[in-house]
Design a protein around this nucleic acid. Structure first.
Lengths: 234, 234
DNA sequence: CCAAAAGTGTTCACCGTACACCCATGA
DNA sequence: TCATGGGTGTACGGTGAACACTTTTGG
């Protein structure tokens, strides 16, 4: 009962006479590369779990909201900015961090490959790497559970939201879009039905341009119909 | 930047050199009474927002997980125990509490009326009352936003989960079950289609008993097919 | 001419929806 | 006998799923 602060050490304002745990945000950032769903992890430099891989994240500052904290930590530790971000779940087991009580507000994030291709390890992290979600390394803290829940949510939202467009580049072909759905869901989809649905819901707008590729018929390019974040199809 | 603890005042263990905000849980407990969806609120005795109504809730203890905290606070402030509980969202705006930084992990809860009928105000609260969700009083903090989000989630989950059974008593008629759905969704449902679906999914088991009511044909009693918490129909 | 992906419609089964009447009871 | 909710079946339309071949290109 004495492992967290019972009161603030800074003075000047009234504070509740109550425990003050540490609070972090952790971010599960996904992208698609080479037809695989990958997640960004950082290698921990310091104990606990030194050498293990962890989600990027860190402590909430006094004057920032949780979402800002997640975006800041992601930028600081990996250099990645401008991703789609959504709160996932708050993990608060008293023993999830061996040092002191740390409550983690987990977020998941999505971005197209080209927006995260230049990710580099910040000063806190020993290294940074992308892992296929079906080949994860040993993970620090409860980050395995966080990732599992993020995947569950991501797959569920594919069915009733336009979240998949968050990993698409500005211009894409319908074949590429379908490949993203198949990659995240882990199953093959029927090409004609897929295209029919996407166009029936008005999810994409044709750009009138073509993408030419070696030895293949050119494919029409599209953009997402709803330029920003649209959550519900119906 | 000096409005939260920067480090623990208790000694003995290593702690991160980081801010330590206060963390609470707040609970939006719903039940059905007289065909209305109602929520349990407590009247605040102390500032800030003294006299305003608020969700029951309170500070997370060092050694308890968040869900335990929610259940404990609900029991302490209202006497209610044994409800269905699910994490909703974490609210972390730096200014949501005027005194200091307080991050609130919000839960929503459901219980049948008879399990909450005896709710009484605990020592912290000046009073306790049930409010119809479409006739809420002035609310403290950001609790209006919390309730709005809880309602949204509750209504969404009705469609793809068996969450409605969490407000049903052990024995109920199909008419009562339908009334609960209609109350939460705020729309009328077709009786034949409703009964067909409920039975097709195997959600209920007939008890072979009847409920007699004055001036009406007796109704068959059922129990939920999945005695505990079942989340997904499909 | 061959490989590789682009592009395109129809059929069928099933599910959700709309809809109306008789029944059993207590007052 | 009347008011009140309990209880039951069918017909239709729309949606999701299955399914194969031609086109265009570069090598």
């Amino acid at each position: 009962m004495n492992d967290t602060s019972k009161g603030p050490s800074s003075a000047g304002r009234y504070c509740y006479p109550h425990p003050h745990p540490a609070v972090t945000t952790d971010i599960a950032l996904f992208t698609i590369r080479d037809g695989r769903l990958e997640i960004l992890l950082v290698r921990r430099a310091a104990p606990p779990h030194a050498g293990a891989w962890a989600l990027p994240g860190g402590f909430v500052e006094p004057d920032e909201c949780l979402e800002d904290c997640a975006l800041r930590e992601l930028a600081e530790e990996t250099g990645v900015k401008g991703v789609y971000l959504e709160q996932l779940y708050t993990f608060g087991d008293p023993r999830r961090d061996p040092r002191e009580r740390v409550i983690s507000v987990a977020y998941y994030a999505l971005a197209p490959l080209q927006r995260v291709a230049g990710a580099v390890a910040g000063s806190d992290a020993a290294a940074l790497a992308w892992f296929a979600v079906d080949a994860l390394p040993e993970l620090a803290f409860d980050h395995g559970a966080v990732i599992a829940r993020a995947l569950e949510r991501l797959r569920a939202k594919l069915d009733y939201s336009t979240i998949a467009f968050q990993v698409m580049p500005r211009k894409f072909t319908l074949g590429e879009l379908q490949e993203v759905y198949e990659t995240i869901l882990g199953e093959a989809l029927d090409k004609r039905n897929f295209r029919k649905r996407v166009q029936a819901f008005g999810l994409v707008h044709p750009l009138g341009e073509m993408r030419r590729a070696a030895g293949r018929r050119p494919a029409a390019l599209y953009r997402a119909a709803h330029p920003e974040r649209v959550d519900i199809i119906k």
